[in-house]
Structures are given as structure tokens and as C-alpha cells.
């Protein structure tokens, strides 16, 4: 199966880039979005991360400001 034609690449941060990006902004100016399951979130998550499990994301976009940059994991 050839997959690439199904996906549009988006930007990615490595850990160092993400830390630098977050550190350079006020916490309220960037959304950190955790799309894992609640059990995984409870075991550990980035400080300030908002939990919206991936299966629910399509119905809960209104909970996140689209005008702010978002780091997703």
C-alpha cells in the first residue's frame, strides 16, 4: 500500500524545539494538546496539556482556540 498520497505533511518539533517554543511564549499563548487516552494522560503528560482523546477530537474542536499555535502529541 502506498500511503503518502493520503497524507499532507505538517510541521514537527523535536523535544528541544518544542521546549524552546514553549519557553519563549506565555502559557496562554500556546495550546498543548494531548490526544492520547485518559489512562495514558494520567500516567504522565506535558505541563498544562489539554486532554482531548483522538476519537473525540472531531467533536471537540470548539474547546481549543484555532488562532493559537498548538503542539500535539
Amino acid at each position: 500500500m502506498r500511503w503518502r498520497q493520503f497524507f499532507t505533511p505538517i510541521k514537527a518539533f523535536n523535544v528541544g524545539e518544542a521546549r524552546e517554543y514553549i519557553a519563549g511564549r506565555n502559557p496562554e499563548d500556546v495550546t498543548i494538546l494531548d490526544v492520547r487516552q485518559p489512562k495514558e494522560y494520567r500516567k504522565g503528560h506535558l505541563p498544562g496539556a489539554k486532554l482531548i482523546p483522538l476519537p473525540e477530537l472531531g467533536d471537540r474542536f470548539h474547546e481549543v482556540d484555532p488562532n493559537k499555535p498548538a503542539i500535539v502529541y
Binding site: K11, V15, E40, L46, A70, Y73
Partner: peptide, 14 residues
């Protein structure tokens, strides 16, 4: 959403 970034490697990398 205009600025969306994946965290490469996810929480494990973090």
C-alpha cells in the same frame, strides 16, 4: 488551526 506542530516521538521523547 493554522499553526499545528506534532511533537516528534510524543510523550516518550519528552
Amino acid at each position: 488551526f493554522r499553526d499545528v506542530y506534532n511533537l516528534s516521538g510524543g510523550i516518550k521523547a519528552w
